[in-house]
């Protein structure tokens, strides 16, 4: 009996260090959750829902009727007020993608991108390398009519081994001329995350 115990224990020890890496390709749209943190699926789900709601708002019909053209929108900052680092760029790009593919609004580059484009235009105009017929002129940039900005909050209720997190994403569309908030939406996403205390 004692000998069997020794045999069993030795086997456990030998296998304690075993392991390896496996890689598997998955479809981009497949939902994969490991840690429970905010991930690409959350960003896509929330942006899709919120932009759909935004584009169904009265502000769009009113603007189009009044001005006779599609509004020009820019995505501003999405402030992260949660306890985890959220890559706001992924969320912002999801929002931009939904806005552009809707075909209902026109879209202009954000502040950082504009600076880069201006540098490029400056190079065209000043370097002497660009065919003069193809040089893009200054003062042709389109000014946005609205800015879309928001916050991501998270409320966490946690105990050892499990937690519930409620993400609350607030987006608002502000008229750049008047500071009037034309549309406001709040979306919530709740996750229950449980961790296994022991494994073999």
């Amino acid at each position: 009996m004692k000998f069997k115990l020794f045999y069993f224990v030795s086997t456990i020890i030998l296998f304690a260090g075993c392991g390896g890496t496996t890689v598997q390709r998955v479809a981009v749209e497949q939902v994969v959750d490991y840690s429970g943190r905010w991930n690409d699926t959350d960003a896509q789900m929330v942006s899709k829902d919120m932009i759909k709601d935004c584009l169904e708002g009265k502000w769009l019909a009113n603007f189009t009727a009044e001005k006779g053209q599609q509004p020009v929108v820019i995505v501003g900052t999405i402030e992260n007020k949660s306890s985890e680092h959220i890559n706001a760029d992924v969320f912002i790009k999801s929002l931009e993608s939904e806005l552009i593919s809707s075909g209902k609004v026109r879209f202009v580059a954000d502040k950082g991108e504009r600076l880069e484009v201006r540098e490029e235009r400056k190079d065209q105009q000043e370097s002497g390398y660009t065919d003069p017929k193809t040089i893009k002129p200054k003062r042709k940039e389109i000014g946005a009519d609205f800015i879309l900005k928001g916050t991501i909050n998270a409320v966490v209720d946690e105990t050892h081994g499990k937690y519930v997190v409620l993400y609350q994403v607030n987006l608002e569309l502000i008229d750049l001329a008047t500071n009037e908030i034309k549309w406001l939406e709040q979306t919530e996403l709740k996750k229950l995350v449980t961790k296994t205390k022991y494994s073999m």
Binding site: I13, A16, K195, K197, Y198, S199, M200
Partner: peptide
Amino acid sequence: YTKSISNIL
């Protein structure tokens, strides 16, 4: 957080 029983042993 997940502890291996074989490791603990």
